[in-house]
């Protein structure tokens, strides 16, 4: 596909839709979690207010250039993921900047934000940040292993590294989805999905009840607003990849919304049922259960 200037506003439109969808969906999911606990829950527009409040703070403190760039990198990870992955299959408007090798780039972007955050949090000089980052990096690395194996498996299966082609191959019937054609790869990747969504039981890195909140300990006002934006964008961006690779992609916005919500709810369901793992427990879990499934998936192909 050749580049056209009109793609830029189209991609920004996609970004805008996804941002608002993410804001409302995360609030809705918090509300569902609250209802499970017997509470009323936050207002559905609370995320917007929090964001506005953080931008409206009058003072902010910088700890250096990297501290400033940390949230920027993190947000870049989320936005980059969306920009280079086709959001709606078959739509010219929401095809974004997908190209022949975008699967590899997407895998890179999944990790990019965490690495940027590590640099920024280290610059803040707060011991809790350093601890949080080292724990987060080790857990995410362990969780990404099954995903990488699952992705290799399906790129072998479809003989392509282009996400659009992979989605195209899954069209037609629900049984053409990778979920049914290669269940092992899907299971392996879902390990990684649950592991990197930063929800229980794998949210020890960011959970406020643990060592104070981990990497973002020192972040406030606009920096925190950037990270909040990423917190709603990034899970959706990641879910888009999973939807494209394993669940047949989406051909229209309503289908997109429903599928994203359903896939997201997988991690929510697991989160409300299981207690939190410690970092070494979750690493052990991924290496013990996730990795063999991933290896099996490659062997099956």
């Amino acid at each position: 596909m050749t580049f056209q200037w009109i793609q830029i506003p189209y991609a920004l439109l996609t970004l805008f839709i996804i941002l608002n969808y993410g804001m409302l969906m995360t609030a809705l999911i918090q509300k569902i979690g609250a209802r499970v606990g017997g509470r009323y829950g936050i207002p559905i527009w609370q995320n917007y207010i929090d964001l506005l409040k953080n931008i409206a703070l009058r003072s902010k403190i910088s700890h250096g250039v990297m501290f400033y760039l940390g949230p920027v990198f993190r947000l870049t990870g989320g936005i980059g993921l969306i920009l280079f992955v086709p959001t709606i299959y078959g739509s010219v408007m929401h095809q974004n900047f997908s190209f022949a090798g975008d699967l590899i780039l997407a895998l890179y972007f999944v990790f990019f934000g965490t690495l940027g955050m590590a640099l920024g949090a280290a610059e803040s000089g707060h011991p809790h940040s350093a601890i949080g980052v080292s724990r987060g990096l080790s857990q995410v690395t362990a969780a990404e292993l099954p995903l990488a194996l699952g992705v290799f498996a399906i790129s072998l299966q479809y003989q392509t590294l282009n996400i659009t082609d992979i989605v195209a191959a899954q069209q037609g019937s629900i049984f053409n989805w990778t979920l049914f054609t290669n269940p092992l790869a899907t299971v392996a990747a879902m390990f990684a999905f649950v592991g990197t969504m930063m929800r229980a039981p794998f949210d020890v890195v960011l959970a406020p009840q643990e060592i104070p909140i981990g990497p973002p300990t020192e972040y406030h006002s606009s920096y925190l607003a950037l990270m909040q934006t990423n917190r709603v964008l990034y899970p959706i961006a990641k879910t888009v990849i999973y939807m494209n690779l394993f669940f047949g992609g989406a051909t229209s916005w309503p289908e997109f919304f429903v599928k994203i919500f359903a896939i997201y709810m997988v991690s929510v369901f697991i989160g409300v049922v299981y207690p939190r793992f410690r970092v070494e427990q979750s690493i052990q879990f991924f290496l013990k259960w996730g990795l063999p499934v991933g290896v099996l998936a490659i062997l099956m192909v």
């Binding site: 609250a34 509470r39 009323y40 829950g41 936050i42 207002p43 609370q46 207010i49 929090d50 809790h128 406020p208 009840q209 104070p212 909140i213 973002p216 300990t217 020192e218 972040y219 406030h220 925190l224």
Partner: peptide, 13 residues
């Protein structure tokens, strides 16, 4: 929480 009140673990936030 329904009034937008929540607890933060660090004074920065």
């Amino acid at each position: 929480y329904r009034y937008g009140i929540q607890w933060r673990p660090t004074p920065r936030q």
